[in-house]
Structures are given as structure tokens and as C-alpha cells.
């Protein structure tokens, strides 16, 4: 049972992190293509965005690990 719960948690986490990060990074690449001189600032803001977005998916993975063996 715990393994199924962990699998569902990991599914949600991977989906959320993938789609969320995909949006942020793709718009950053668009911005860098438009204005190459801004790419330093855009890169820094992208890392902040990724760090913020990944908070919830990582917590979902931690919950998955916690219930994995129950």
C-alpha cells in the first residue's frame, strides 16, 4: 500500500515540477533570445523561480519517501 501511495506522490511531484519549471525556463529562453544583453539578469531570476517552484514537488517526494515502507 505504501508503495502505491509513494508512486502517486512521485507522479504528482514529477508532473508539477516538470510543467512548472518548463514554463519558467522556456520563457527565460524566449527573453534571452530577444535581448541577449539581459541574459545574466534573466538567468539569476530563472534560478530563483526554479527554487521557488520546486518547493512543493520536493515536499511531495519527501512524503512519498516517508510512506514508502508502510
Amino acid at each position: 500500500m505504501g508503495a502505491i501511495a509513494a508512486g502517486i506522490a512521485a507522479f504528482g511531484a514529477a508532473l508539477g515540477a516538470g510543467i512548472g519549471n518548463g514554463f519558467v525556463i522556456s520563457h527565460t529562453i524566449d527573453g534571452m533570445a530577444r535581448q541577449p544583453e539581459m541574459s545574466g539578469a534573466l538567468r539569476g531570476t530563472m534560478f530563483i523561480g526554479v527554487g521557488l517552484i520546486e518547493a512543493m514537488p520536493i515536499l511531495a517526494i519527501v512524503i512519498g519517501f516517508l510512506v514508502m515502507n508502510k
Binding site: 527554487g51 521557488l52 520546486e54 518547493a55 520536493i58 515536499l59 517526494i61 519527501v62 519517501f65
Partner: peptide, 16 residues
């Protein structure tokens, strides 16, 4: 909550 748990989740998941 998110400020603390974000740091915890990233580091704990990495070590685990």
C-alpha cells in the same frame, strides 16, 4: 512555512 520547508525538503530529499 514555505520558506522553512523549501530548504528542508530540498536538502532532506537529497540526503535521503
Amino acid at each position: 512555512l514555505t520558506l522553512g520547508l523549501r530548504l528542508f525538503g530540498n536538502i532532506f530529499a537529497g540526503e535521503l
